[in-house]
Write a protein that binds this DNA or RNA. Structure first.
Length: 293
DNA sequence: CCGCGGGCCTGAGAGC
DNA sequence: TGCTCTCAGGCCCGCG
């Protein structure tokens, strides 16, 4: 599900109820996420407090007073919900499961802030790990990740450098977390449309042979920053059941220009094209074959 | 090194 | 109603 804007929206929702608060009680209701939870997961959290909540790529990183970092990933279907904590155990079997479904609430944090934070993940592609702070930068999940696209250091020079000599498609290159962090299927499609670049274009064509950026690289970086900024501003995208931590919907899905709009008229001014869907690397790509070259 | 296909899971929606 | 099929915002592994 979530890409950078959705994860950032989640981070902003969790920050007020996690930062400075203590884990009073932790429920690990289902330990078999994409990786099994550490066996001592609950013990290493209970009684400790969160000193900061950050984000790297699509990972949420909570600094814990024990010296661990709690690393959380939402996979395809993960979400967090914050509610007022009334202290009771999470019910396992409700009479009306559809209206208040706790079936996939795998982890629940009861915080000293009075918040009950539940992690819900039907498909269980999500992840929670505890990594000692000093080992985080070298952790296999972290160390290969490319630049943060909203950081100042991410520019056309850096992107062109990363794409230099790459025979793979721009779609595949931008989806690669080593090239740039945090993009997924939606925002790759959206950024390429804004930059008027074909998802099928060879990635190396945004750089000269020496790796210097050309005008396409400039457009692409601007488009990536713009679409991510707009999406964060809108509270991310809510497809299917994804919500913000307060249960409200993000609304960036209403601003999609190509994603899931197969057959619709291209919105680029003056363009008479129609949005097409193709498959690249087993995933849908949406683009306008007329203005995206 | 590279691209591709498959796998991990569950649920929603379409078509019959 | 219920079955079967496809598809879904991520990521990893193994193959050729």
């Amino acid at each position: 599900m979530p890409e950078l804007p959705e994860v950032e929206t989640v981070r902003r929702g969790l920050q007020p109820v996690m930062e400075g608060a203590r884990f009073v009680r932790v429920e690990a209701r289902r330990p078999d996420l994409r990786r099994p939870l550490p066996k001592d997961f609950v013990k290493r959290l209970e009684g400790r407090s969160v000193t900061g909540l950050g984000r790297r790529a699509k990972y949420l990183l909570a600094d814990v007073s024990s010296g661990d970092v709690l690393l959380m990933h939402l996979g395809m279907s993960g979400s967090f919900r914050v509610a007022e904590d009334k202290g009771e155990k999470t019910p396992g079997d409700l009479h009306h499961p559809r209206s208040d479904d706790r079936t996939h609430d795998h982890i629940v944090f009861h915080m000293s802030s009075g918040a009950r934070i539940s992690f819900n993940d039907p498909r269980r592609f999500g992840l929670m790990l505890l990594v000692p702070r000093a080992e985080l930068a070298d952790h296999p999940l972290m160390k290969e990740i490319g630049p943060e696209p909203l950081g100042n250091e991410f520019d056309a020079t850096l992107l062109a450098q990363a794409c230099r000599g790459k025979k793979t498609s721009l779609k595949a290159a931008l989806s690669d977390q080593k090239v740039v962090a945090g993009l997924g299927n939606i925002y790759v499609c959206e950024a390429l449309h804004r930059a008027r670049l074909s998802p099928r274009r060879m990635a190396s064509t945004i750089a000269s042979r020496t790796g210097a950026p050309n005008e396409r690289a400039e457009r692409l970086v601007d488009a990536i920053k713009a679409v991510l900024g707009d999406a964060i501003h809108a509270g991310g995208s809510s497809l299917r059941d994804h919500r913000r931590t307060d249960g409200e919907l993000g609304y960036f899905q209403h601003h999609f220009r190509v994603y899931d709009r197969e057959g619709a008229k291209c919105v680029t001014p003056g363009c008479k094209g129609t949005v097409r869907r193709i498959v690249q690397g087993g995933r849908s790509t949406f683009f306008c074959p007329v203005c995206q070259t």
